[in-house]
Nucleic acid binder design. Sequence first.
DNA 1: ATATAATCTATCAAACTGCTATGTTATTCT
DNA 2: AGAATAACATAGCAGTTTGATAGATTATAT
Lengths: 152, 152
Amino acid sequence: MRISTKGTYGLRAMIDLAMHSDSGPVSLKSIAERQDVSELYLEQIFALLRKSSLVESKRGVKGGYYLNREPREISVHEILECLEGKLSIVQCLEDGSEACPRDQICPTRVLWKRINGAIARTLDSYTLEDLIVEARYREQNAPDQEGGDILS
Amino acid sequence: MRISTKGTYGLRAMIDLAMHSDSGPVSLKSIAERQDVSELYLEQIFALLRKSSLVESKRGVKGGYYLNREPREISVHEILECLEGKLSIVQCLEDGSEACPRDQICPTRVLWKRINGAIARTLDSYTLEDLIVEARYREQNAPDQEGGDILS
DNA sequence: ATATAATCTATCAAACTGCTATGTTATTCT
DNA sequence: AGAATAACATAGCAGTTTGATAGATTATAT
């Protein structure tokens, strides 16, 4: 299964959320603005994150979302599985997939399992905190985009 | 990018082709029967394999396809890329994808690249020959399915 | 000549993706 | 109390992809 915008937006939103949660709940509106994605689409994404208890919410004015655990206690794997379902490079090894009649003789099954394993291991090795560190680093070292105003 | 049936059928078909190419070209009809997939669909798949020179063909009676190289000289990666295009877990790192305006600051990019790398490395480590060995092994050790006739 | 099998082009239904639209409910602030 | 804010819920929808099918043409062995 390829990771769709649901997963990529969601992960970026979680990083954004973590980086802006010093002063209470973070509204989807603010995340949507900073990340330049549809707020309505984010709503759907956060509905899933909430169901998996990765975030909690507070309604009304000054409301918004906040993380339910420390960033270093949240693996990227968890976030993506919550949004995309069990990740598998092929459909036949996916969660709800009906049993393949060829599974006993299929010579490619081993291969797909290895790839799924490699993906899972990579995702498990990253926590949300790791990505926050990465984000902060990039913030500092990014080419200055504000300066663009002057140059035309 | 998830690997679709195009890739999985194609890979299985290549294994099948390799295992039955002792006596000249192998027809798609025979592959389709053995692998239980649509012959017309296989045609589209083999059109791609031929364009990438992984197979060659001979028309007419006694015609069919044959491998252009030895199975151990053909990596699974090649076969799948030929059928699915450059494999990437996310669209933004895909081949024809337009440059992401956020690529300099995106904290998740590293992660996707790692996963793509892990997938590529796994696929590179398998040749068609490896899968043939796997297939022969499974052929021998599979639960006897012919016996089913007797038991109703 | 006939049967076989590749080759080519077009079409298509169903599913998925990436949204948008339209509300309703809860909470804070004035 | 009332207005503004923001989560929550459900429905719809255009565009793309997927997994084929259909029909016709060309090449080759017997």
